[in-house]
Amino acid sequence: MIIPHPILGPRDAQEFVYLGDASLIDRPDGMTAGIEVFHDYLYNRDNPAGLHRELWYHEQGDRSWLVVTRDTVTHEIVSAELARDVARARGRSK
């Protein structure tokens, strides 16, 4: 499998470590959100047959965390973005 790294171009998936659903980006604030919200955040996932956004880490590369959009039916990788950019676009900051 090849992941189109937004900075480094096509890279072998062997260089990456997989984490999981990119919804992990939307971490609730621990000072305001309660156990139920965190439980939902940590454990409940969609399981789509089709496009899936997921977090990959370029461990044997530039250490970037990426959001990779992959088709779970065909294995086709549609896109890869820097997770930092995605997180900022979703309103995350400090």
């Binding site: 965390w65 900051s93 400090k94």
Partner: peptide, 12 residues
Amino acid sequence: LEYCRQVLWPDM
């Protein structure tokens, strides 16, 4: 730590 600083708190 890379996950925390890139994904969770990207502006730190």
